[in-house]
C-alpha cells in the first residue's frame, strides 16, 4: 500500500516558490491499478516521482507498505528503488546497449546475481513481453511499442512490488497503446503488482485502471472507482476529460435536442444489466415510446457499461422511471 500523508512539493525557481503539489492525502491499495489523470502541469508527474523520490518532497510523509520512504538514507533509497519499477513516455532505453543488456541492467546494478542467473531471468522476461527474438538488437532497431515492451521487461527485472508508469502510452499510436495497456493489465493480475500510472487520456484510465484520481492545479479534485468517476463525473475537470474521451460536446447535444418532444433521460447501465432487453420490456409494460438520442456501449476495464440518452413520450412515465430504478439502472432526468 502506498500512502501519502500531507505530502507537498514546491519548486524554487530563482527566488520564487512554485507550488507543484498541494498537501495531499492519498491511499493506493496493494495490487490495484491506480490512475492519475490531469493536464500537463497539474502535478501528476510530480506526484508519481515522489513515490520513488526522483523528486524530494517539500514536506509530509510517504509510506510504502508501512515504511516511511521519505526517511530513507541514500543506501536505503537505493534498495527501495530496486523494488519499484518505472516505465517512461520516451522509454529511456540505453541506445548503446542491446535489448538484453537493457533488461539486464537493473539486475547488474543491484549485484549479487551470477551471470547465468541474469541471462536466465532476462530470457524469461523477454519471452513474457514477446520479444525473445529481439534480444540482440539495439533499441533504435525497434518500433515504439517494442521499445515500451523492453521498458516493461526492464522495469520488472528485479521483481518489484510497484510499477510506476509515466505517460507510458502517450508516444504510441492507438493500436500499440491498446496492446501495451493489455500487457500492463496482464502483468498486474499475474504478478499481483501495484501499478500507478499517469496519463492525460481518459481512455487509458477506462481500459486498465481500478481507481482513478483526477488532478488539477496541484491537487486531487476527485477520486474513486473508475466506473463511478467515469460515469458520474462531478468536478468540471473530470467532466471535460470524460467528454474528450467520448468526443462529444454536451452543450451542443442539448441544443440539438431542443426540438425533440417529451422527457429526456440519461440511463447508465453497468455490468450484466447492460445486456438485458430492458428498454423494450419497459416500453411494452408502461406504454411509453422512446427514441434513442445518443448512446454508447463499451467496457470499463472488464465491466461492460452502457449510457443512453432517451426521449420518452406518452404512457405512464412515473411507472417507467420506477421500473428503470428497480432494474438498478442509474437514471438522470435531463429535461
Amino acid at each position: 500500500m502506498i500512502e501519502f500523508d500531507q505530502v507537498h512539493k514546491t519548486y524554487r525557481v530563482g527566488n520564487r516558490d512554485i507550488p507543484a503539489l498541494q498537501p495531499t492525502r492519498l491511499n493506493i491499495e496493494s495490487g490495484e491499478v491506480f490512475g492519475l489523470i490531469g493536464h500537463s502541469g497539474a502535478g501528476k508527474s510530480t506526484l508519481l516521482r515522489l513515490i520513488n523520490r526522483l523528486e524530494e518532497p517539500s514536506g509530509g510523509r510517504i509510506l510504502v507498505n508501512g515504511e516511511d520512504v521519505t526517511a530513507l538514507d541514500t543506501d536505503g533509497l537505493r534498495r527501495f528503488r530496486q523494488r519499484v519499477g518505472m516505465i517512461f513516455q520516451h522509454f529511456n532505453l540505453l541506445s548503446s546497449k542491446t535489448v538484453a543488456d537493457n533488461v539486464a541492467m537493473p539486475l547488474r546494478l543491484a549485484g549479487g546475481r551470477s551471470r547465468a542467473e541474469i541471462d536466465q531471468r532476462v530470457a524469461a522476461l523477454l519471452a513474457r513481453v514477446g520479444l525473445q527474438d529481439h534480444a540482440r538488437k539495439y533499441p533504435a532497431q525497434l518500433s515504439g511499442g517494442q521499445k515500451q515492451r523492453v521498458g516493461i521487461a526492464r522495469a520488472l527485472a528485479t521483481e518489484p512490488d510497484i510499477l510506476l508508469c509515466d505517460e507510458a502510452t502517450s508516444a504510441l499510436d492507438p493500436q500499440t497503446t491498446a496492446q501495451v495497456l493489455q500487457l500492463l493489465g496482464e502483468i498486474n493480475r499475474e504478478l499481483k503488482l501495484t501499478v500507478v500510472l499517469i496519463t492525460h487520456e481518459m481512455d487509458v484510465i477506462r481500459r486498465v485502471c481500478d481507481r482513478v484520481a483526477v488532478m488539477d492545479d496541484g491537487r486531487i479534485v476527485e477520486q474513486g472507482p473508475v466506473a463511478e468517476v467515469f460515469l458520474h463525473p462531478r468536478h468540471p475537470t473530470t467532466q471535460r476529460f470524460v467528454q474528450e474521451d467520448e468526443a462529444l460536446d454536451e452543450n451542443e447535444q442539448r441544443d440539438d435536442f431542443a426540438h425533440v418532444p417529451g422527457r429526456i433521460l440519461r440511463l447508465t447501465f453497468q455490468g450484466e444489466a447492460t445486456y438485458t432487453p430492458l428498454l423494450g420490456t419497459v416500453a411494452r409494460e408502461t406504454g411509453v415510446d422512446y427514441s434513442i438520442l445518443a448512446g454508447r456501449i463499451d467496457r470499463i476495464k472488464d465491466v461492460p457499461y452502457g449510457q443512453l440518452t432517451l426521449a420518452l413520450v406518452g404512457g405512464d412515465l412515473a411507472a417507467a422511471l420506477a421500473r428503470f430504478e428497480a432494474a438498478e439502472v442509474h437514471v438522470e432526468v435531463l429535461r
Binding site: L77, N92, A110
Partner: peptide, 17 residues
Amino acid sequence: DRGIIEATQAMGATTRQ
C-alpha cells in the same frame, strides 16, 4: 538524454553506476 539518467536512478543505481 536526461531521461536515461532518470531511468538509471529509478533502478537504484549509485552515482558511480
